[in-house]
Design a protein around this nucleic acid. Structure first.
Length: 836
RNA sequence: GCCCGGGUGGCGAAACUGGUAAACGCGGCGCCCUUAAAAGGCGCUACCGCAUAGCGGUUCGCGGGUUCGAGUCCCGCCCCGGGCACCA
């Protein structure tokens, strides 16, 4: 007998899997490809390699690996690859601080991730490993960019960004604190810069519609994306300013309230603002207001209880439905990013317009009858957002506002002053970054030819080595003058390269396709390989990516499909969003000092314990609180299984045919049969819970129960052939079922007891006959209260159960002197006697 | 404010379509093994009460309802976590 020594076992099996390349799968047409097996693509979100892996990684890959193993043993050909999302800001910021090149720090971290994934025993097909910062990967990221560019899905335009005048750089929103630069404290200004965008808004409707095409995504993730896209239906209505001969279209979801518009508001960034006020009395005041707003951060501007401010322009526009001239204002509660950057203000039926009207003494007009008892408003019950009959609306008076809505749009259409319109909250994807550590945007600027895409045969545009990583108003790449200076691919004349790099979300929006053909030097992937493996059957990752990454990946997949490179519209058929692990009741962070290093626990308890623990803490889609006692509990359980194996291997004889064992057990009955029955119960329970949304915590508890029963019964079973067989079956079954979580121990125990490699065995199937027992416990209730539990034959008839129930002493006590008014019998479960 | 999750023992949690609430684990208590300790094995452990081999009462955030029967279904609230938020 020897104790459970995870280190030795884990190294042994890891060597087997690495040496035999157990988890590698070939593509169709390659040797070893099994055409009979259905495919299953199991993929966890690739890690961002920074420092060492943390428990979030451990959980993600433990969960994904359990699924991969389960599917393999269910007969699927499973592809389960791994890669690294290697470009990005943290490595670059580290470079600015320490001078260490981002590549060096990143590759050191990748080393660490790779080593730990191997130490965890994750069943990865390492032949497909990739990293997004390698030229042979980002060459194809650039290719995808150019594909989108050629179809007009990538474009360059001016956009407002946050700019620090002292550091002379663009800042991310998170780097702006209270309107000041996080680093130097200088007030940040908004600046317009040429930026690259992907036209994701073209796909807004398809991104919404295709939720229906997904097999299983968490409802809340879909809802989050839906809200993010923010589709709303309404009308576009044109207001005209005759004085300066300009037209102002507005988007409204409430065309029924058009007659209630008493003023008009433009966003401070509205491009026509200048023309409206140039040379007027209002010019100075408007300019001052716009400047002030421009200096404010998004946070300040969006503050919940912010007071309404604005400046009148001294101009009017005409309301197309009634010819009324209404005054025009500029106000920061109107956003340039949404709709047309201009609104018709209906203070009678919109609370924001109402607040503005109050602040500026503007008229409030009711056009729909009704008062909301929940939000009563002023003395007249305004603003009122509900439904009702129209008033003060000319020809529409008396109509219900819902009917008027349609009628109004129709009428506007006839007059040529409006039409139905749809608006989205979703903005185009701003993908350019004035940063070094990313994939260069493969565009060249030529004085003669303008913007020229780098031809495919000149890809990749390699990231040059530089000395100075800090940005000075443009990408650090601009300093690499030799690199920037280039030849125009069209005319051969002098040209310069684009110095911006791509957002890392571009890199990670297609990696799951590259896995399918990672060494292809001729193309991003082979179409047949992609056609075979796509879509990802099970995608696993944290909820924090519910919106950005998952939506970008969906967009890129659709765009590539439209371009004829892919056959699927959706990349991820099933999504599993894991919950976050906390410690001391809080999210783990270095500043809080409550982080957990997986390596430390793997060192102390072994990878099997660490993996099994994160799966046992609770349902994996929920968060969980990490406790050291919990880890020890799981370690105790695995040790217990180990010792059971040790003892059973020593004290029982191997029975090669399980049918023989079962027959023997059947004959003897008693404990041997009870243990076999428990084993089959565990198989049944584990399989069902696996399939019912990956309820790993209860899968593991079922195996614990089986091991507990084996311990309780083993001493009476030893020596008896049926008993030995039952013990062997129970131990092997426990090993087989725990294998997806504790693959090393599972393999070791299974090999010692059954003499086979567990991962080569099919997932066990419960014997239905072993799941039913001869007798069942039936609960007897009197008036709904439990008064007794009686043993009854499993297939006892209603009459028989009633008799048994009434015969019970304790039950009889409660029946005494009463009259039974109703008898409810649920066969095999319960009897309820209703008495008076 | 709107949209999602979630509230069950001392703690993490179970409970499939309404049918034994608390499986499994942690923690705690007791016993066995041991010269002793650790490790391990076995048992008890929702709470309260009593005439304590047993029996009774009370418990799934709060208040109602449907039902023979509700953690589970319906209505109304409260609290916690997450997302979005001046989106016209």
């Amino acid at each position: 007998m020897s104790g459970y020594e995870p280190r030795a076992i884990e190294q042994k099996w890891q060597a087997v899997w690495a040496g035999e390349r157990t988890w590698e799968v070939p593509n169709p047409g390659q040797p070893g490809f099994d055409e009979r097996k259905p495919k299953a693509y199991v993929c966890e979100m690739l890690p961002y390699p920074s420092g060492e892996p943390h428990v979030g990684h451990l959980k993600c890959y433990a969960v994904g690996d359990a699924i991969a193993h389960f599917r393999r043993r269910q007969g699927f050909q499973v592809i389960h690859p791994m890669g690294y999302d290697a470009f990005g800001l943290p490595a670059e910021n580290n470079a600015i601080k320490t001078g260490e090149p981002p590549r060096v720090a990143t590759e050191r971290s990748i080393e660490s991730f790779r080593r730990q994934f191997q130490e965890w025993g994750i069943s990865i097909d390492w032949s497909r490993e990739l990293a997004t910062h390698k030229p042979d990967y980002y060459r194809w990221t650039q290719w995808i960019f150019l594909q989108l560019f050629e179809r007009g899905l990538a474009y360059r335009t001016e956009a407002a960004v946050q700019w620090c005048p002292k550091d002379a750089t663009v800042l991310a929103n998170e780097q702006v604190v209270d309107g000041r630069c996080e680093r130097c404290g200088t007030e940040v200004i908004q600046k317009k810069l040429e930026q690259w965008f992907f036209k994701i808004t073209d796909y807004a409707d398809r991104l919404l519609e295709d939720f229906d095409a997904l097999e299983s995504w968490p409802e809340h993730v879909i809802t989050m994306q839906r809200n993010w896209i923010g589709r709303s239906e309404g009308a576009e209505v044109v207001f005209r300013c005759d004085e300066v001969d300009l037209e102002f279209p507005v988007f409204t979801t409430r065309p029924d309230t058009l007659f209630g518009a008493t003023f008009f508001v433009l966003a401070p960034e509205h491009p026509q603002l200048e023309k409206l006020v140039a040379g007027t009395e209002a010019e100075a005041a408007v300019r001052e207001y716009v400047d002030r707003v421009g200096r404010e951060s998004a946070e300040e501007r969006g503050a919940e209880d912010r007071e309404k401010t604005g400046v009148p322009l001294g101009r009017t526009v005409v309301n197309p439905v009634n010819g009324e001239e209404i005054p025009v204002f500029v106000a920061d509660y109107v956003l340039m990013e949404y709709g047309t950057g201009a609104i018709m203000a209906v203070p009678g039926h919109d609370s924001r317009d109402y607040d503005f009207a109050q602040a500026f003494g503007l008229p409030v007009r009711r056009v729909i009858e009704g008062v909301d008892p929940e939000a009563p408003g002023d003395a007249d019950g305004l603003p009122y957002a509900g439904d009702g009959p129209m008033v003060n609306s000319g020809r529409f008076d008396g109509q219900g506002n819902r009917d008027a809505y349609a009628a109004m749009i129709e009428w506007l259409g006839e007059e040529g002053r409006g039409k139905t319109a749809v608006n989205y909250r979703l903005r185009d994807w701003l993908l350019s970054r004035q940063r070094y550590w990313g994939a260069p945007i493969p565009i060249v600027y030529c004085d003669e030819c303008g913007m020229v895409p780098v031809p495919d045969d000149q890809l990749p545009v390699e990231l040059p080595e530089i000395e100075e990583y800090a940005p000075h108003g443009q990408s650090p790449l601009a300093a690499a003058t030799d690199w920037v200076r280039t030849e125009c691919p069209q005319c051969g004349g002098a040209a310069r390269r684009e110095t911006d790099t791509m957002d890392t979300f571009v890199d990670s929006s297609w990696y799951y396709i590259r896995y399918l053909d990672p060494r292809n030097a001729e193309a991003a992937w082979d179409r047949a390989a992609a056609a075979h493996w796509m879509p990802v059957d099970q995608y696993i990752g944290g909820v924090e990516h519910a919106i950005l990454h998952l939506m970008y990946a969906r967009f890129v997949t659709k765009a590539l499909a439209d371009l004829g490179h892919l056959e699927v519209q959706e990349p991820f058929a099933n999504l599993f969003a894991q919950g976050m692990i906390t410690r001391d009741g809080a999210k783990m962070s270095k500043s809080r000092g409550n982080t957990v290093s997986p390596a430390e626990y793997v060192e102390r308890y072994g990878a099997d314990t660490a993996r099994t623990y994160v799966c046992f803490m609770g349902p994996p889609e929920r968060g969980g609180e990490w406790t050291d006692e919990g880890v020890e509990g799981v370690n105790r359980f695995l040790s217990r299984l180990w010792r059971l194996c040790d003892e059973v291997a020593e004290r029982t004889e191997a029975v090669s045919d399980p049918a023989v064992a079962e027959a023997a057990a059947e004959e003897t009955g008693g404990e041997a049969r009870a243990l076999l029955a428990k084993a089959h119960w565990s198989i049944d329970k584990a399989t069902k819970d696996f399939e019912r949304g990956f309820q790993f915590n209860t899968v593991i508890s079922a195996v614990m129960e089986l091991v507990n029963d084996a311990y309780r019964l083993k001493d009476v079973l030893y020596g008896d052939p049926a008993g030995d067989a039952a013990l062997r079956f129970a131990t092997a079954t426990a090993a087989s079922l725990i294998f997806p979580f504790a693959p090393h121990l599972g393999s070791e125990v299974y090999e010692r007891i059954a003499g086979e490699r567990v991962w080569e065995q099919g997932w066990p199937v419960a014997d239905e006959a072993m799941l039913v027992s001869d007798t069942v416990t039936v609960v007897v209730q009197v008036n709904g209260k439990v008064r007794a539990r009686v043993e009854a034959p499993a297939e006892a008839a209603q009459e028989e159960l009633l008799e048994l129930a009434k015969a019970n002493e304790n039950v009889a006590k409660y029946l005494d002197g009463t009259q039974i008014v109703k008898e409810i019998v649920v066969p095999g479960k319960l009897v309820n006697l209703v008495v008076k």
